[in-house]
Write a protein that binds this DNA or RNA. Structure first.
Lengths: 245, 245
DNA sequence: CAGTGGTCTAGACCACTGG
DNA sequence: CAGTGGTCTAGACCACTGG
């Protein structure tokens, strides 16, 4: 990988912001100062700054200057996965494997993954002993063939597939809906049947765009919510909503 | 508002893509051709193209060219507001004002907006006659003072505040949760009490970061879901989720 | 190979901010 | 007012794609 100047500048500025160098209303050096300091053109410096704005790290106002973005926005940009959030707050999430089987794909799963036989794993996630997610993951038989039940209890599927070099994962599409808890959900999550749950379905693709993981997460509504930070809006209505069927 | 060249170019290209001019693998004119055609510098043309890439409308490959993005991603990038989606599919959304009042802010509303008196508007949105959203909007008394009941029935709050120059809106934070339909929700949305609903709360800030609009949207779960497109992932778990309390 | 997008430079004018 | 970020120009070199 070629070294990109704007990326090096962005990395350096991100580090300095994280170190608190520009905390609480203090402005960054002006673009022309940064241009001199990094010995780059203003366009390159701006490309780095705009990238950090897109990440939610920095923001700017014309006539004023660049500054570290609102902490709320920063923390949202860094939210990451629920497990990393829990780990950061000192709670060790437990992962319990309920089911591990190679089975025929249902019509829905076949439509998404395009294969007839899949590895299906059901897991329960707990935080401080209380269940907070019921997870079902489907992967094509070929990708799951090397995985053991102990593997999926110890590690996340992302680690097992990506870091082990089995697949190179690219983007994903995530849908979030509400539903009433099924009997199976209710039993595992220790909530009443029919009580509201958040249901999240996620299709993860390889870098080539081929869908390789289908995951369903069910969360009890009283314990969980999704947070989305929108750097700019053109409406006050929720974004990303669509009507189904 | 000053006319921005890169924005005009982006608007034109977006329209041409939507019209199918570059459908199914056909490339757009090269950047140097676009530079001549729009009589702008290459940097300006690229700024327009990059903006459309960020929207999910276009994509490019070095050495090949620019092309209309994958339709899946396109539809996600263009999702925008539910009302614009409906309009695009030929359904005219109706907006019915249920309530329009200046009232004392509840503790929650005061905590968010930082004022004691607010304009509170309740609306019902329908598509093809069927209710799909119950909306409550709170704005500080000072911002709502110039608005009439007819205004909020005809136009969106965004149009009323931003385009009318009352406030310059910046970013927003949106939380999505599930809940059981309250009696009021159920009555207005024509669903059973206790059936699952998606509940979305959105805080919109001015460009200066001051919260000025609080909006709550309640959607019947069986008709609606949120879709998020994630260009790159570092986990297969849902992103943006957090535990409440 | 010729042509493409990706990065980068050294300038310029403008709208906007704070004092 | 001087200084700031926002936009825009006319160049340049590079890595990469397809034939």
């Amino acid at each position: 990988m070629r070294e990109l100047r704007y990326r090096k500048i962005a990395d350096d500025l991100r580090r300095r912001v994280a170190a608190g160098e520009f905390a609480s209303g203090r402005l960054l050096p002006s673009e022309s100062e940064l241009t001199s300091a990094y010995d780059a053109s203003r366009v390159t410096v701006r490309k780095a700054l705009e990238a950090l704005r897109a990440e939610g790290v920095l923001d700017a106002r014309q006539g004023l200057g660049w500054f570290a973005a609102d902490p709320v926005r920063q923390s949202l940009g860094r939210l990451g996965t629920i497990e990393s959030q829990l780990a950061a707050s000192g709670v060790v999430p437990e992962r319990l494997v309920l089911d591990f089987a190679f089975t025929r794909a249902s019509r829905r799963v076949r439509a998404v993954l395009g294969v007839d036989t899949v590895l299906r794993v059901r897991r329960l996630n707990r935080a401080d002993g209380a269940p907070f997610a019921r997870v079902t993951v489907w992967v094509p038989e070929s990708l799951g063939a090397g995985l053991s039940r102990n593997d999926v209890e110890r590690s996340s599927f992302y680690d097992l597939l990506e870091r082990a070099g089995v697949a190179r994962l690219g983007g994903a599409t995530q849908t979030i809906g509400a539903a009433a808890a099924s009997e199976a959900d209710a039993h595992v999550l220790e909530i009443p049947v029919g009580s509201p749950v958040l249901r999240c379905e996620r299709v993860t693709r390889t870098v080539d765009g081929e869908p390789v993981i289908l995951a369903e997460h069910v969360f009890p509504a009283h314990r969980t919510e999704f947070v989305v930070d929108l750097p700019a809006v053109d409406s006050i209505a929720p974004s990303g909503l669509r009507l189904v069927e």
